[in-house]
Simulated assay, not measured.
Amino acid sequence: MSEGDLLHVVTNDNISPARRMLGQGLIWGSAALLAGLGCAQMLQALGQHDFGFQNWRPTLYAYVLWSVCLCAGQVLIHGERGKRTLFVLPAALFVVSLTVFPLLFGLMIAFSNWNLSSPTGRVFNGTDNLVQMWHDPFYWNALGNMVWYLLAILVEYAIAFGLALLLAGQIRARKFFRVAFLLPLMLSPVAVSWMIGKSMLEPRFGPLARLARALGWENPAFFETAWMAKATIMILDAWTFIPFMMIMLLAGLQAIPKELQEASRVDGATGWKSFWEVTFPLMLPVSITAVMIRIIFKLKLADIVINITSGGPGGATDTVTSFIFREYRERSNVGYGTMLAMVYLVIIVILMTVLMKLADRWMRPRL
């Protein structure tokens, strides 16, 4: 082995027991301090005992101290191998601080009665928020609406796939149409809701309402009935995000080797048969990725609903996110709103995990 290769070999350091014990003492001592301060501040937050803490900064400082001691302890215990962990460990600790602590703080609020208009402030109420959620028909109505919104993704996917096939072909002004179809994606949902939902679909003076009256619709009201309002919201949301799916599918179509398509034509597979037996199976990985990302965006649907209908009429267009938003803004019910958000987060995690498992199981025989 040459001298240059020896630079990439990590040898076992001669670490004394005293040094290893010092490293373990630093890690466990700082961890005990962090756990003690965290438990004390949690008890004070729940109203069990007053330790005199003004805020959560002592726990933050203890976490920073534990992080430094953990990094130093790795070097003291493992030597050169411990130094290699320092390339990853600080970043991991930083990510934990940005995810775990807000999650724990959110859970603490979720099990509290905290209304910003109440003079008593935040009061721990156990599982009362869960019981209230279980008997809340508006929350279950919003969850039911989300099922319809998610089913609309199948139609959006079919339209996006058709547009991608169209733009992948040799048509005139192909570059112009690509830019034109991407324009809705460049607009924010808030702009779409005000430009179309509040202006063009306005029942008295909106241009689309006038066109509808000219075509024979006496009283064009796009948000008056439940089914019409829900369908209009679906169309506006689809118009905004179909270009996103289209551009992903178009990239997948352009990545398919032309030799495979030419070979299918030689074998007699043309038209629909070529699409179903060659193009569609090759596009499955891209299609599943596009649909999964679209589901994530759909589960966050709120801004269009909030700006146009505020969940009406009668909660017909409500989404879980818009309902939680109203709990925070209109009712100032921070505790109950946080509980709804936490439960919705659990539902999203379970749903996406199941969908990814099913997609992986469905894709495995085809790869």
Rank of each mutant, 00 (worst) to 15 (best):
N141E: 12
F161L: 15
G197Y: 00
G169P: 03
M146K: 04
V147C: 08
S193E: 00
I153P: 03
R172L: 14
P189S: 02
A142E: 00
N141C: 05
G162V: 03
G169T: 01
Y149F: 15
L182I: 12
L166G: 12
P189G: 00
A180H: 05
A173F: 15
S193G: 05
A191W: 11
Y157S: 13
A180F: 14
S188W: 01
I153L: 08
L150N: 12
G144D: 03
F161D: 10
A152R: 09
L154V: 15
G169N: 13
L163I: 13
P184H: 02
W148N: 03
G162A: 04
P189F: 00
A158M: 11
L163W: 06
I171F: 11
V147Q: 07
Y157P: 07
V192K: 01
I196Q: 00
L165E: 05
F176M: 09
K175A: 15
S193N: 02
W148D: 07
L154K: 07
I196E: 00
L187V: 05
N145Q: 02
S193I: 00
F161N: 13
M146Y: 01
I171C: 13
W148Q: 07
L166N: 06
S188D: 05
L182M: 13
V179T: 15
L150R: 05
F176K: 08
E156H: 08
I196W: 01
G162N: 03
G144C: 02
V192I: 14
Q170M: 09
I159G: 09
W148R: 12
L166M: 09
F177L: 14
P184S: 06
L182C: 14
A152V: 04
F177Q: 08
A164N: 05
